[in-house]
Amino acid sequence: MSIWTYANPAKFMATTARAVPILSLLAGACLLGGLAWGFFFTPDDYRQGATVKIIYLHVPSALMAINAWLMMLVASLIWLVRRHHVSALAAKAAAPVGVTMTLIALVTGAVWGSPMWGTYWAWDPRLTSFLILFLFYIGYMALWSAIEDPDTAADLTSVLCLVGSVFAILSRYAVNFWNQGLHQGASLSLDKEENVADVFYYPLLVCIAGFVLLFVALVLARTRTEIRARRLHALQLRERMA
């Protein structure tokens, strides 16, 4: 079966009606399990002390902040090329979840930075590109709200999403590009020497799985709402014309 079958709203609604509760349960289990494991059953770091426990929130939320935008980029490109309404609505549905993840990453990063760097904020390449990504999320949502015609809104927000992708990618690779600033490199690496210690790594993986599942469940649930809202809008227009 082709993936484009799900561009049909009826097929999408039928499939996601079964998927959302399962994904939500899995997300809750992974989040609660991972956070409890990390918070209660892992030791303090020899340099960072108990602040290392912030890693279970900061890394997964930062990862999802970037990947949410990349998911919106793919959905926007599908809209621009193939004009499938479900993909435009999925991009719209992902933005509030993405902005929440970005805000969590910014706040937990600032709270973690204060004792470790001696400051809540620095105009470091990664921090700055993350702040700009946050502003792009706000602008993206504002643009959707500002335009009445949904197809025009989908077109313009898709173009904004393309532009914002530069900052999503910069947020990920800023440390490598400029090799300066306070922020460290990636916490997760295939290189064993660069990766975090195993005692932190496994609960972190569970937390990342929890954040990914939560993101997917929320985006699917919100896309279902957007599809219903579109149908509601069409019925209301018909009522007004009658």
């Binding site: 989040l31 956070l35 918070f39 209660f40 303090d44 002390g49 108990a50 602040t51 426990k53 912030i54 929130l57 900061h58 939320s61 509030p96 979840v97 929440t100 805000l103 969590i104 706040v107 937990t108 709270v111 973690w112 204060s114 004792p115 939560l214 929320l218 649930a221 919100r222 709402t225």
Partner: peptide, 28 residues
């Protein structure tokens, strides 16, 4: 766990994240 002198920072990070995550779930 004993969070020592970083209890405020760790507590704040978890509290803010919980509020934001529960907020987006409730809004949805």
């Amino acid at each position: 766990p004993d969070l020592g002198k970083y209890a405020a920072e760790v507590g704040a990070a978890y509290a803010v994240s919980a509020v934001l995550l529960l907020g987006i779930v409730a809004l949805t």
